[in-house]
């Protein structure tokens, strides 16, 4: 069943086409990776889905509704969560507050009721419990009350993932979750992504450059190059695709492959 259906979206910035008629559909419950060389339009595609960019043309249908004209916060409320390539956290808040912010739209409590003593604590307790479950899930207990700005980069990435999970999303968009990480941290994050996918059943769309991870964990892969989709399929199909090889290795990819084989 299709959860997210992107039809022919295009967007250009001052004459440069970032995305040209990209079509992509993501089934409920799949783990889909988007790959492509630098500047291929991967992040632009994510920005269109989460509402930062309004596509010039085309539709983005999420659960049967066209969300391409909605504001980012409206899209978030419909169950789309994302993380960023460069961590976008609230550095002056601790881990718990960052994650409670992820639950912002799950609170049904108005602002005047909040300010009345006693009422706030009752409402917050429920969400605090949910946040603590996610903290357990991502093994972040020791950093609970630390200011996020003082944590190492790898942990910050995990907090951001936790904040996205706190939103209880139907679809999770991850923009390069493993950049700047060492082997061990990469494996940790890969394991968390698989856990989220299998235990929580969340649909995941992930941009990643680490091909080992991509080929290992994703079920479907979509390849972008110069704002166009050049291939889509299972990891095995993508590895054999001549268009993909050309995009990554250049026009004379056959001789490059030949050279690699010989040496």
């Amino acid at each position: 069943m299709v959860l997210l259906d992107i039809q022919d979206i295009s967007i250009s910035f001052g004459g440069i086409t970032a995305l040209g008629d990209v079509t992509l559909s993501v089934d409920r419950g799949t783990l889909c990776a988007i790959i492509g060389p630098n500047g291929a339009g991967k992040t632009s595609l994510l920005n269109c889905i989460s509402g930062f960019y309004k596509p010039d043309s085309g539709t983005i249908v999420f659960e049967g509704q066209d969300i391409s004209k909605y504001r980012p916060d409206q899209i978030a409320q419909r169950g789309v969560a994302r993380t960023f390539q460069n961590v976008e956290l609230f550095a002056n808040m601790n881990v718990i507050d960052n994650m409670l912010l992820g639950r912002h739209h799950h609170f049904q409590i108005g602002f005047l009721k909040n300010a009345i003593l006693g009422y706030r604590a009752k409402a917050e307790t429920i969400h605090r419990q949910r946040v603590e479950e996610i903290i357990d899930f991502l093994e972040m207990e020791q950093w609970r009350k630390h200011l996020v700005g003082s944590l190492p980069y790898g942990v910050q990435k995990r907090v951001e993932l936790g904040r996205a999970l706190a939103q209880e999303p139907k679809i999770l968009l991850l923009d390069e979750p493993m950049t700047g990480m060492n082997q061990e941290e990469t494996e940790d994050i890969a394991r968390f992504i698989l856990d989220i996918h299998e235990e929580l059943g969340t649909t995941i769309v992930m941009i990643e450059h680490d091909m080992n991870v991509v080929m290992d964990i994703s079920e479907r892969i979509c390849v972008l190059d110069f704002g166009k989709k050049i291939a889509e399929g299972t990891p095995l199909e993508i590895q054999k695709d001549p268009e993909v090889q050309k995009a990554y290795l250049g026009e004379n990819y056959e001789s490059v492959l030949e050279g690699a084989r010989r040496s």
Binding site: P72, D73, E88, M93, H105, R163, A164
Partner: peptide
């Protein structure tokens, strides 16, 4: 506070 610290991130979480 989220708006003060990082309004982009505030918007993306709703």
């Amino acid at each position: 506070v989220a708006i003060r610290d990082r309004d982009i991130a505030a918007e993306i979480i709703g």
